[in-house]
């Protein structure tokens, strides 16, 4: 039709993003809260600290660990996901691997940095929101990284938009309905270098469409980075002013 998606966005528009740093008053070293559409995630980071488990100790660098919890009310169906749930394990591995490669772990030998994520509400792009939340919480904890780690999804839309032969536009930042309807992927980049550190796909995607989807995903990451950077600077300024007084 008019090229509008089921929530009124056009193909290249992000959903509303709201993010905050230092949201938790618990004993975490850093924390964050992010909303991407109705996907809502809380993240706490502790460390670098003494590893809780002796076996995890690495002699020359820090160990990055990750735990993900789904709130039972987070999805449309009340599914309890336990520690050994496949989806939980996949998410944990993806997040852990991503940050292990970006955090300057060699600075903190024999210590542990642990990321714990609570998913409060799922409306598509869960992995992307988790990664973005973790980035903010790590910044809040003051853990050095090479740059912002940003994630965004892109979907292979199936609607034939216009003239013959033209591939339909990829959809940026898919919501829950789109995610269950069309193949999509999550792109994770570092900084504004367009360097991809992780790419996750759960469905088959047409090879001819892949390049365009990744391109859209990368641009989405850049925009997410802009939004997070703004919030980090705002929060930093606020903090400095508070200390200056």
């Amino acid at each position: 039709m008019e090229g509008l998606r089921n929530d009124g966005r056009r193909w290249n528009e992000l959903r509303r993003i709201h993010c905050q740093l230092s949201t938790s008053s618990t004993n975490a070293d850093g924390s964050s809260y992010i909303e991407q559409g109705f996907t809502k995630v809380i993240c706490n980071v502790t460390g670098p600290a003494e590893p809780s488990n002796r076996q995890r100790v690495k002699q020359d660098s820090a160990t990055v660990s990750c735990e993900v919890y789904f709130a039972a009310f987070s999805g449309t169906d009340r599914i309890k996901r336990g520690r050994n749930d496949k989806k939980v394990q996949e998410l944990q591995t993806a997040i852990q691997k991503t940050f292990d490669s970006v955090i300057l772990t060699h600075l903190f030998a024999r210590s542990e940095i642990s990321i714990s994520i609570h998913i409060l509400s799922q409306d598509g792009g869960t992995l992307a929101a988790c990664i973005n939340a973790a980035t903010l919480a790590l910044i809040d904890a003051g853990i050095p990284m090479s740059d912002y780690v940003c994630a965004c999804t892109a979907g292979q839309s199936t609607s034939i938009f216009d003239q013959e032969g033209a591939s339909p536009d990829p959809w940026l930042d898919v919501n829950y309905l789109e995610e269950s309807d069309i193949p999509s992927l999550t792109v994770v980049t570092v900084g504004d270098s367009e360097k991809i550190v992780a790419l996750s796909m759960e469905n088959k995607v047409r090879i001819e469409r892949l390049e365009a989807m990744i391109a859209v995903g990368i641009s989405g990451c850049a925009r997410v980075r802009g939004i997070m950077d703004k919030e980090v600077r705002r929060y930093g300024k606020e903090k400095l002013e508070a200390e200056g007084e």
Binding site: D7, G8, R15, R16, F38, D77, N175
Partner: peptide, 22 residues
């Protein structure tokens, strides 16, 4: 409000983005 086959009723909230360029 979505009612599933099993008779369960769920409330689903979805975002709508309003625009002026239509």
């Amino acid at each position: 409000i979505r009612s599933a086959k099993s008779g369960k009723v769920t409330k689903i909230v979805r975002e709508i983005y309003l625009r002026t360029d239509i």
